[in-house]
Simulated assay, not measured.
Amino acid sequence: MIRAITTFGYVGLLRPAPGTWGSVAALALGVVMDGWLGFPALLVATIAVTALGFWACAQALRDRPGEDPSEIVIDEVAGQWLALLFPAAAFFFGPGKDAFLPWPAWVGAFVMFRLFDIWKPWLVGRADRRHDAAGVMLDDLWAGVFAGVTVILGGILWHAVLFS
């Protein structure tokens, strides 16, 4: 069961680039969840998958300190959903809530999350260098925060230029 959780239903076994496959699966599920069930469901799911991810990674890596196996993608799911929460919250609390997030918001969240997850600047890299189970989750959560903030700033800039 731990392997099913850490690989997000075995998506992490897909090759090449299991982290990208995990992010794609998380993105698809997150956009559908937000569209059908709304922002509160995405928020609860993000909190749940994050808690489950910390627990499952600790269990899976208990006898393998310092490892971050590529098939573990529950961290990408948590980070990708965290990145999606930013535009989802903006549309939920802002005027004109659409049934589904408009494509620039979720494409931006995906691209920026993958960029920060691969590039690993500042706090993302610091978390990655922990070399423990918590670090496996934390680097992707920081990447999700940076991606979410970038998408919101990009949206503000786009609308400020477009509608000024």
Rank of each mutant, 00 (worst) to 15 (best):
S164N: 15
L29I: 15
A90N: 05
P102N: 12
L42C: 00
G22I: 08
T7N: 10
F54A: 06
V111G: 08
T6A: 14
D139P: 14
V124D: 02
M137S: 06
G148P: 03
W119K: 07
R129A: 13
G30L: 03
I118P: 10
A160L: 15
T6L: 08
T20D: 09
F146Y: 15
A105Y: 11
G108A: 05
R130N: 11
A83R: 03
L85W: 00
A134C: 11
G53K: 04
V149L: 12
Y10M: 11
D132G: 07
T150I: 06
V44I: 14
V44M: 10
A147Q: 00
V31L: 01
T20E: 01
A45V: 13
Y10A: 02
P121F: 10
A56C: 07
A83S: 07
V151D: 05
Q59L: 13
M1S: 14
V31Y: 12
G79C: 09
L61G: 10
G125C: 08
V49Q: 00
R126G: 07
F8L: 14
V44S: 04
G66Y: 13
I2G: 09
A105H: 07
S23W: 09
R129K: 09
P40E: 08
H131P: 04
I152S: 02
W81M: 02
P16E: 03
L37G: 10
K120V: 04
T150A: 15
L82Q: 10
E67I: 01
W122E: 12
D98F: 10
G144T: 01
W142Q: 03
I74G: 03
V149D: 05
D140P: 03
W81N: 02
R64S: 14
W103K: 00
G66R: 12
D117N: 09
W106V: 05
A45I: 08
A41M: 13
V124I: 14
